[in-house]
Amino acid sequence: MKSKHHKIAMYEPLYYGRAHHIMPHEDILGREIKAVMSQLCGLLSSSISMFTSAPSSYQLQPYDRDSIGCGIKGNVVLQEDTLCSMDLTVKPAKTSSLIRSIFREDKQWKLQQIQDAINHLKIGFNMISMFEDTSNCDVDEYSKTFVIDILNNLLRCVNLSRKRLFSPCKLTLEALVSSGIVKIFSPPLPGDNIVNFYILEDCLVITHYTVQQNHAHLTKSSPTLHLEQLFHPVGSVLEHSGSLYEIATAHRSFCLIPWLSKVVSATDICLQLGNQLKEKLTLS
């Protein structure tokens, strides 16, 4: 098993040597340091525990309010970083037939964003735990350098965690076609369907596209060809098996994940507390 020190090596090194200007625990700033560090430890601990959730069902809501009479409906079951099941009903256009499909019983989908987010928070928690262990020992003094280094690395972990939730990977349509997502549905989705899932802040977002081949005006000079985006609007162009296609319909749906909302709020408070303490230490 990797040690805490090994994990910290991924970030900036921590310095344990005492500086020339030492702050005793008994002074006001010293007590504030311990209090803030304890708060940060509690916030990270509670955030990590929120990722260990029981399976919960969420109803999909339309992302685009102007899609009256068509779009995505259904519900999903999410446990931690795993989409356990999905019941999807799509009406691509007002004149289209309904498409209804569910996850195959032997298939689930891992949301790497959530796994990455919790991993960064665990690394941050290990760092803050090291400070807690040090401050509880028979050590009466610690240096500003030591505290600031811990804060810098902790803030980096929290920012990386939030970045995974706030900034999903942008993919080309070609990447979505080859992702294999459509293969986990039963009955199989029609061949002209493309589906994607991603986390955006505290929501799970589902995108659905239908494509059509159009020889009249599509060229490889299209500015949307191979373009990496979260959402590809109608008219976007993709290349598949040597042929060009365009997006005929594009819809989004989402569901709010309450425990992710709590994680976002807790990590926001972590950033505020950490930056405020870091500023005080820098100016003291």
Rank of each mutant, 00 (worst) to 15 (best):
3 S>N: 03
6 H>F: 13
10 M>H: 13
12 E>C: 06
13 P>A: 04
13 P>M: 03
23 M>K: 06
26 E>T: 15
27 D>Q: 07
29 L>E: 10
32 E>W: 03
34 K>N: 14
34 K>F: 09
39 Q>P: 02
41 C>L: 13
41 C>G: 08
42 G>R: 07
43 L>R: 02
46 S>D: 14
47 S>V: 02
56 S>M: 13
56 S>Y: 04
57 S>H: 07
57 S>V: 15
65 R>L: 07
67 S>D: 15
68 I>V: 13
69 G>M: 03
76 V>A: 05
86 M>R: 03
87 D>L: 12
93 A>K: 12
99 I>W: 04
105 E>K: 15
107 K>F: 01
108 Q>H: 09
109 W>C: 10
110 K>S: 09
110 K>M: 09
115 Q>R: 14
116 D>N: 15
119 N>A: 15
122 K>E: 14
124 G>Q: 05
125 F>A: 09
126 N>Q: 14
127 M>V: 10
130 M>Y: 01
131 F>T: 03
134 T>F: 04
134 T>V: 07
135 S>T: 06
137 C>R: 12
138 D>Q: 12
146 F>H: 09
147 V>R: 00
147 V>W: 00
151 L>H: 05
153 N>S: 11
153 N>L: 00
153 N>P: 08
155 L>P: 00
160 L>Q: 11
163 K>C: 14
163 K>Y: 12
165 L>G: 03
166 F>L: 15
169 C>Y: 12
175 A>H: 11
179 S>I: 04
180 G>T: 06
180 G>R: 09
182 V>C: 11
186 S>D: 08
191 G>T: 14
191 G>A: 14
192 D>W: 05
195 V>Q: 07
197 F>W: 08
197 F>V: 05
202 D>P: 04
203 C>I: 00
205 V>W: 02
205 V>K: 01
207 T>M: 02
209 Y>V: 02
209 Y>Q: 10
211 V>P: 00
212 Q>L: 11
213 Q>H: 14
214 N>T: 11
214 N>P: 01
220 K>T: 11
221 S>V: 07
226 H>C: 04
228 E>H: 07
236 S>N: 03
237 V>G: 00
239 E>I: 01
242 G>Y: 06
242 G>M: 02
243 S>V: 08
243 S>P: 02
244 L>I: 04
247 I>S: 01
249 T>M: 05
249 T>L: 01
251 H>L: 03
251 H>I: 02
251 H>T: 09
253 S>C: 09
255 C>Q: 01
258 P>F: 00
259 W>S: 11
261 S>M: 06
266 A>N: 13
277 L>A: 06
277 L>F: 05
280 K>N: 05
